[in-house]
């Protein structure tokens, strides 16, 4: 039997040092809802596991005011759901994070893990992209910030340098009249993986879209920021023509594969449908803010 070292450092510096020292043989453990499954399936065989949940910064949620939040990378979905103000501020991000796995998995699964797993179908990622989240990363060469959409590099891969650990997500301030939403298409109602995931974040003023961001998952090697879809929405009242133009932009952005979870044609079609539905929810929420 292979021995596995388990480390649970209480500071980020220790974690980074241990991670760098293991030179590729270590894996970061947040909730473990991907890592442990991969280990049981024999896909991941780490020599060292570095549990980051003992590091206070990684499990903290900070209300920075004005709608801005800082969420530790290892905060679980269940803990985020219990936060007194976050639900109202970023309902789309929260519903996306809360779609990672089942109720039981929610006690563990974290947005940091979801991002670093590198799956194009990770539920929290399109919502974070739509939200304009910035990821704080710490590594052997110090700390840096990166827009969340720059982290995934392809299925199972990220742009993180060796030894780098995702520390936190910062969601920006946003004006009154903003709202976000996340929808995914799954064949079942639960316990499934997104065939398409759609995050939309809107700022409305007098019924007109002032700002928009669209994050699209499971239709390309990485989660996409669909700027053309956002452009098609900005300055409109979300009339049918604007929604159709944004849907068309989403369809055009898709570079999906045929696989066991969906066909190319179906995924492209669904991306357009979900854009319209998600934008409608985000707009409703923006109106309510």
């Amino acid at each position: 039997m292979t021995d596995i070292r388990y480390l649970a450092p209480s500071t980020l510096d220790e974690a980074v040092r241990a991670f760098a020292a293991a030179s590729g043989a270590a894996r970061i453990l947040a909730g473990g809802t991907d890592l442990l499954v991969q280990m049981r399936a024999g896909i991941a065989k780490p020599g060292t596991i570095i549990d980051i949940k003992k590091i206070p910064e990684l499990t903290a949620i900070e209300d920075l005011g004005g709608g801005a939040y800082r969420i530790g990378a290892a905060v679980s979905g269940a803990v985020l759901a219990e936060h007194p103000t976050f639900r109202k501020a970023w309902p789309g991000v929260l519903e996306a994070v809360n779609l990672i796995g089942s109720k039981q998995v929610q006690g563990r699964a974290s947005p940091g893990g979801n991002l670093c797993n590198g799956s194009p179908a990770g539920d929290s990622v399109p919502a974070m992209v739509a939200a304009g989240a910035v990821v704080t990363i710490q590594g052997p060469n110090g700390r840096r910030d990166l827009p969340v959409e720059k982290v995934p590099a392809g299925p199972g891969r990220t742009t993180l340098a060796p030894g780098e650990i995702v520390v936190a997500f910062t969601l920006p301030q946003r004006p009154k009249g903003s709202g976000d939403a996340y929808l995914r298409m799954i064949p079942r109602t639960e316990m499934d993986i997104a065939v398409v995931g759609m995050g939309v974040n809107l700022t409305m003023e007098g019924g007109v879209v002032k700002a928009a961001r669209v994050g699209l998952g499971a239709v390309a090697p990485t989660v996409l920021l669909v700027e053309d879809a956002a452009k098609a929405l900005i300055g409109t009242k979300l009339d049918d023509a604007a929604l159709e133009a944004a849907a068309a932009a989403c369809r055009a952005a898709c570079k999906p594969i045929n696989d066991k979870r969906g066909t190319i044609a179906y995924r492209i079609k669904v991306a357009g449908v979900l854009l319209k539905r998600t934008a409608a929810i985000a707009a409703r929420r923006a109106g309510g803010n």
Partner: peptide, 27 residues
Amino acid sequence: SEEYLYDKNGRVDNASFLDYRMPVCSD
């Protein structure tokens, strides 16, 4: 929802309860 999916080499591509989609209670 339930079906076996085979790849071109004749291997089952969805040999798990995640991708072999039996209904769950909420369905």
